[in-house]
Design a protein around this nucleic acid. Structure first.
Lengths: 192, 192
DNA sequence: TTTTGACTATTTTCGTTTATTAGTCAAATA
DNA sequence: TATTTGACTAATAAACGAAAATAGTCAAAA
C-alpha cells in the first residue's frame, strides 16, 4: 500500500461517507487528496471499484474487531455472543459507506457490491457457527438440530435490525434496549 | 359503506398494489372502477387520503386476524406468541400496500401515513404486552423487569425483519426457518 | 345525497441544449 | 520500470422550456 494509494483511499472514504456514492465525483476526490485524477484511475480502475475498496476496508476493520472477541476462549459462550452482537452493531454504526449499501433504491444500485456483502455474510455465518459449536462442546448451549441453521437465523436477525438502527437513525435510542433483546435470545439457547 | 365507495376502495387497493402509489393515477382508478373521478373525490378528499384508507383497511384486516389468536385463552403463552408472530408475517406478506410504506425512499415519502403506522405500532405493543402479562400471571413466562420493554423489543424484532422478508422478497425462502428463530426467542422467555 | 364529466391548476414528462463527470492517454517524473 | 500528471474525449447528468398527464374543482343532473 503506497502512501498515494492510502491517501486516495482515505480521502475517498471521507468524501463518499459525506455525500454518498452518487453525489461524489472522482474529480472531487482527486482534488481533495491533492492528486491528479490519473493517479486515482491508476490505483483504482473505476469509481465502482474504488467504492468497493472503501466498503471492503470498513468490513475488514469490522472483521478484525470481531475476531478479537471470539478469540477469548475463557469467556462464557453467552457472553461471547452478546459481545459479538453488540460490537457488530457498534462498528456498523460508524461504517457509513457500508450503510449506504443497505438502501434498497429503485434500480438495484450497488449490485456491484453483491459479492462483497455475500462474502461478509458467509464469514459471519462461519464465525457464529464456530461460537455456537464451541458453546455446545462446552455444554453451555443447547441447540438441537443443525447448528448452521441457527447461525443463519441469528445473522438474519442482526441484518434485519440494520434498517431500523442505521437507516432510520434509531441506533442511539434503541441500543440500550438491544442488550435486553440479546439477553432473551441468548437465554433461549443457553443450557444453564 | 356505500357500494360505490366500496368499489372505489377495492379498485384503488388493487391498482395501488400493482403500480404503487406514485405510478397510479386517480383517473386510472376511476376508470377501472367505472366511476367518474368526481365520485372518487366525493368519497376520498385526496389521493393521499385514499391511499391512507387502503393501507388502513389492510392493517384493520391484520388486526382482526391477530385478535382471533390471543382470544384463545386455553393455549400456552409460548404457542400464542409463536402463532401471533407467524400469522403477523403471513398477513403482512400479502399486504402489498403496507409494504410500500416500508421503502425508505429519498424525500421521506409516505410521511402522511406516519400516524397510521404509529397507531398500529401502539396497538401491537398493547397486544403483545397483554399476552406477556397473561403468560407471567399463568406462571408460564419469566420476565424480570418492565414487561412493556420486552413487548417493545419483540416488536422491533418483528419490524426489523420486514425489510429482508418483504422488500428483498425473501419471505418464501426464510419463513420455514422463521419458526426456528421464534422457537429460540420464546424459549428465552419461557419458564418451563 | 350522490354521481357526473368538463374544466383548471399543478406536476410530470419529453426533447434539446449545456455542463459535469467518468474514464483515457501521451508525456513527465522518480 | 513504476508512478504521477493534466489536457483530452466520451458518456452522463443537469437545466430548461414546451407539451402532456394528472390532481383536484364545481355546476349541473340523477
Amino acid at each position: 500500500m503506497t502512501p498515494t494509494r492510502q491517501k486516495l483511499l482515505t480521502t475517498a472514504s471521507k468524501t463518499f461517507s459525506k455525500y454518498g456514492f452518487y453525489k461524489t465525483s472522482m474529480d472531487e476526490i482527486a482534488k481533495s487528496a491533492r492528486k491528479a485524477k490519473g493517479s486515482l484511475y491508476y490505483h483504482f480502475n473505476s469509481k465502482e471499484l474504488l467504492f468497493r475498496e472503501v466498503v471492503l476496508s470498513e468490513l475488514t476493520f469490522l472483521k478484525q474487531e470481531l475476531t478479537s472477541i471470539f478469540e477469548d476462549h475463557n469467556a462464557d459462550s453467552r457472553d461471547i455472543i452478546r459481545a459479538y452482537m453488540t460490537k457488530r452493531m457498534m462498528i456498523m454504526n460508524i461504517s457509513i459507506n457500508y450503510q449506504e449499501t443497505l438502501r434498497p433504491e429503485f434500480y438495484e444500485f450497488y449490485e456491484f457490491l453483491n459479492d462483497v456483502i455475500l462474502e461478509m455474510d458467509q464469514w459471519e455465518k462461519q464465525q457464529i457457527t464456530k461460537i455456537l459449536n464451541r458453546g455446545v462442546a462446552n455444554d453451555e448451549l443447547e441447540l438441537p438440530g443443525d447448528i448452521g441453521v441457527y447461525a443463519e437465523m441469528l445473522l438474519i436477525f442482526l441484518k434485519g435490525l440494520e434498517t431500523p438502527l442505521f437507516l432510520k437513525g434509531q441506533y442511539e435510542r434503541l441500543i440500550a434496549n438491544f442488550d435486553n433483546l440479546i439477553g432473551i435470545l441468548t437465554k433461549g439457547i443457553s443450557k444453564i
